Simulated scan of single mutants.
Amino acid sequence: MSTTSSSPGLCSWTVMGCSVRLLQLLSTSVASSLVASVGTRRVGVDNWFMFFWCFCYVVTLLIIIVEYSNLRSHFSSHWYNFPINYACYAALFCFSASIISATTYVPFLPQGPTRNHAITATAFSCIAAAAYGTEFVGTWVGHRPRRIITYVHTVHGLLKLLENFVACIIFAFISNTSLYQHQPALVWCVAVYSTCFILGTLAILLGLLYCDNWLPIRFPVSQLGLTLFCILLYISALVLWPLYQFNEDLGGQSQRSSDTTCRDEFTTYVCNWDQRLAVAVLTAINLLLYVADLVIASCLVSDRLHPRAPDSLYLWRYYVV
């Protein structure tokens, strides 16, 4: 299916979309190059936003090659789903990288070229986030008259994207393995984050491929079961992570001042205690997202079991499926 249309609005967005993607390439390449050129990378959280920029640059370049060459004709009609979902993810990733860099990286750098490079890289990361956000909104609005509905257009799909996005931020903090390697309960929490992320990714892929007829269980029912399973896992993580990280009787540190990494005034990364707290907060946030997801999935299953009038059913599927 071609991306062009006789509609003037769609044609203008095709031209604008090309410009936006070129801006994405420019901003992500400049951001990663500036930081890498002065060797300011550190082990831990700081490496993640470098990974985000490089990953976004590579994938955007591949999309441009496929979109503006004959390669697209070799893909199925589901190709349309990939760029719009990727744009949503990339906007969130670049935005989070900008926040992480501006709050946990730049303030700790000494005055000089290194700090200036980091500030400029953060600014270009913000530009990249805006460019990806523009592509997502423009594609969504520009194709709505054609009734092209993708998984990311739905409330359920957006919640899945947010759940995986929060999980990626958690992974950035737990990349410091010293936070959990000493306690089996904390290793279990890491396993919970990884398992739920994999299940969420699988759910997104199945939703993008419209595989409702492939599964032995109807897609909404399977989503309901997976979401409930993830909620139970996250409840265990929400209990175990703070318990073993902040309870001194179990080897944790209840006070930030007791963490030696937080007393180093020359540190260039978020100290261990702050990372523990960030993971605990993000765990609670993701649990709330899963609960909201469960409510949406339950309503959808109920709607399937007790169909409404055709018009209301169509609207329900359009905004929620």
Rank of each mutant, 00 (worst) to 15 (best):
A309N: 09
H78W: 07
T60C: 08
R42Y: 09
S6W: 09
V187C: 12
V137T: 06
T120N: 03
S77Q: 12
A203W: 01
W48N: 12
L228I: 04
C94M: 13
L282N: 01
Q24S: 12
D212M: 06
P310M: 07
R146K: 08
S254I: 09
G9E: 07
L282W: 00
T139P: 00
L315M: 13
I63V: 02
V137P: 04
C11T: 15
V141H: 08
L233Y: 05
L232K: 02
V301W: 08
T104C: 00
W53Y: 13
E67F: 03
D293Y: 01
C271L: 00
S33M: 08
Q255T: 06
V58F: 13
H182K: 14
I235K: 08
L205W: 12
A97W: 09
T177H: 13
S7C: 03
I148Y: 09
F108T: 04
I285A: 14
V15G: 00
R308W: 12
T195W: 10
C88M: 14
R115A: 06
L287V: 02
A292Y: 08
L243H: 11
F93L: 13
N85G: 15
Y210I: 10
A280S: 07
W316L: 11
V270P: 02
G251N: 12
S302A: 15
Y244A: 00
Q223E: 15
A237N: 05
A91Y: 02
S12C: 03
D264M: 03
T283D: 05
Q181W: 13
S175R: 07
V281G: 00
R72S: 12
I204W: 01
A121H: 09
I148M: 07
T283H: 00
V155D: 09
A130W: 08
A123T: 14
L62Q: 11
G112C: 01
C18K: 15
C271R: 04
V166L: 14
L289K: 04
P184E: 02
V239M: 12
D212W: 11
W140G: 00
A102M: 06
V106S: 05
C196E: 10
S29F: 09
G142H: 03
P216F: 10
V321G: 14
L305K: 09
I119N: 06
G17Y: 07
L226M: 11
V155W: 11
N81R: 14
